[in-house]
Design a protein around this nucleic acid. Structure first.
Lengths: 202, 202
DNA sequence: GCAATACGATACGGGTCAGACTCGTAACGC
DNA sequence: GCGTTACGAGTCTGACCCGTATCGTATTGC
């Protein structure tokens, strides 16, 4: 949590300690409400408190406002970053593409679309978004460069465009459900293979 | 407009006719406010009325509520659908890919991200979204099939995946500004060429 | 036991908004 | 001119919410 007393150096303040269960309940209530379809700005502290079985003061004691709470809640969603094995370039790409928009928490699928409008609303939030995706982008870039070095991929490809090529289809499918008929399970494989082989007859 | 008296068959109702300028001003005010960063649900009828220089009643006389008004306002944004020339498959694809997320109205760029969360909120709205994109998807599908028939494209490609491949990169760039360093102008060309040729060394 | 701090619950003033309503006025057909 | 309808502006009631404060109670260290 952002403004909670840090765990280690605290000389143990007197009085009743803050309830960890309340922390958990508040975060969970926030995510639940979002996953149930509430939009970010329709989300009210009062609703969160009621859902968590908690007084409003308990929330304000921990977070400065809705934004700070949301930031912590959303952090909870982020899945572990995929780690490519490093053997086959194709398999590594399939792994990375499959990890796009994939989160541990099933609620994330409902919540992600709500974040899209937020991303470009301010420079701060855009930076926050870039901070999340840039390590994943770096991972993919390294795999592609490795492929070039190994001679598996052509040397003259535009790496950045290729990354967009691999990421875009997966993202619009997971976030937007762009084509309801596409099978999400096999999509990573099919995308990677299509990008590898190209579609021109030869 | 959805509930305005239809133009043709109306036997001319008595009294003062509704102001066309008011219609226009209301729609424009709605789009302006959205483009200035207001989110859809933060948008209030009162704000729209004030911005349009119009009484609230004038809005309620025309639309049942915010949703109906928004539906009409957003209809205004939709650009003309691109029309492929039919000569070169590559050029047609570049044209179609370039048209993705491209609208006549410059305000659309700011508004589109706000629509992402709405799309999957109800079956109705999802259908509405599909109705908009499916004719464009059909167009691209026809170009790809033509390419296969002409022998320009391989016969064994998955057409639906290929469409996602062409659409995804453009969409995440236009809507999400996924990679700020990518040049949006030349992106359609580069995407189409990359998809055509593939990235595997040979 | 006592001070300190937390808890859930509730009340408060201040704010925004939806929708329905009321003004006096303006534009139309007859 | 008269009936009809629309106009902009404004009012009013009832929601809902924020952020703070105040209850009585619970949990900690000393």
């Amino acid at each position: 949590m952002s403004d909670m007393t840090s765990t280690a150096d605290a000389p143990r303040s007197p009085g009743r300690p803050r309830s960890i269960r309340a922390d958990e309940a508040i975060i969970e209530a926030t995510l639940d409400l979002l996953a149930e379809g509430s939009t970010i700005e329709a989300l009210s502290i009062e609703a969160i408190a009621a859902r968590a079985g908690v007084g409003k003061a308990t929330i304000y004691r921990r977070w400065a406002g809705k934004d700070a709470l949301l930031l912590d809640a959303l952090r909870r969603l982020k899945g572990v970053m995929a780690k490519p094995a490093g053997h086959s370039v194709r398999d590594d790409l399939v792994l990375l593409v499959g990890a796009i928009g994939k989160n541990v928490d099933p609620r994330a699928a409902k919540i992600m679309p709500c974040l899209v409008p937020v991303v470009n609303r301010s420079a701060d939030q855009f930076q926050l978004y870039q901070n999340i995706i840039s390590p994943r982008r770096k991972l993919m870039r390294e795999v592609l460069r490795r492929g070039i070095d190994e001679g598996v991929l052509r040397a003259d490809i535009d790496v950045e465009v290729t990354m967009a090529l691999l990421t875009g289809p997966m993202l619009i499918q997971r976030v937007l459900q762009w084509n309801p008929d596409l099978d999400e399970q096999t999509l990573p494989e099919r995308v990677v293979d299509a990008v590898l082989e190209g579609i021109r007859a030869r």
